[in-house]
Computed example of a mutant assay.
Amino acid sequence: MKALWYLRKTIWKNQIKKALKRPTTYLFLVLGIFYIGIIVAGIGTVAATFQFDSAYGFVILMTIWSFYMIPANFVSYAGRKGIIFRPCQAHFVFTAPISPKRILLDTAALNLGLSIVGGIVMSVIGVWVFHLPIWRAALMFLLCFVLEMVLECSLIIIVYGSDRFADGKFKRWGIFIKGILIVSAIFFLWYFKENGISLKSAAELIEHPVFRLLPVVGWDISAFRLVILGPDRLNVIGTVLYLGLIILLTLMAIRIKNTGAYYEDAAKFADDYQELRNRSKRGETGYSLGKKKKFRTVKGNFGGGAKAIFYRQLLEYKKERFFIFDSMTLICVVLAGVLAKMMDRRKKECRGWL
Rank of each mutant, 00 (worst) to 15 (best):
I157T: 06
I158K: 04
I158M: 14
D163W: 03
D163E: 13
F165Q: 00
A166R: 14
D167C: 04
G168P: 08
G168Q: 07
K169F: 02
K169A: 14
F170C: 05
K171N: 11
R172E: 00
G174N: 02
I175T: 01
I175F: 00
F176M: 02
K178S: 04
I180P: 00
L181M: 14
L181C: 11
L181R: 05
V183N: 01
S184W: 12
S184T: 07
A185R: 02
I186C: 03
F187E: 00
F188P: 02
L189N: 01
W190K: 03
F192W: 10
E194G: 01
G196H: 05
K200C: 03
A202G: 10
E204L: 14
I206Y: 11
E207Y: 02
E207M: 12
F211V: 10
R212L: 12
L213Q: 10
P215V: 07
P215S: 09
V216E: 06
V217G: 01
G218K: 07
G218H: 06
G218P: 07
W219Y: 14
S222H: 09
V227F: 13
V227H: 10
G230C: 06
G230H: 06
G230L: 08
D232C: 07
L234H: 06
N235G: 13
N235I: 00
N235T: 15
I237Q: 12
I237P: 09
G238P: 09
T239C: 12
T239S: 15
T239M: 11
T239E: 08
V240G: 04
Y242G: 00
Y242S: 06
G244C: 12
I247N: 06
T250C: 07
L251T: 03
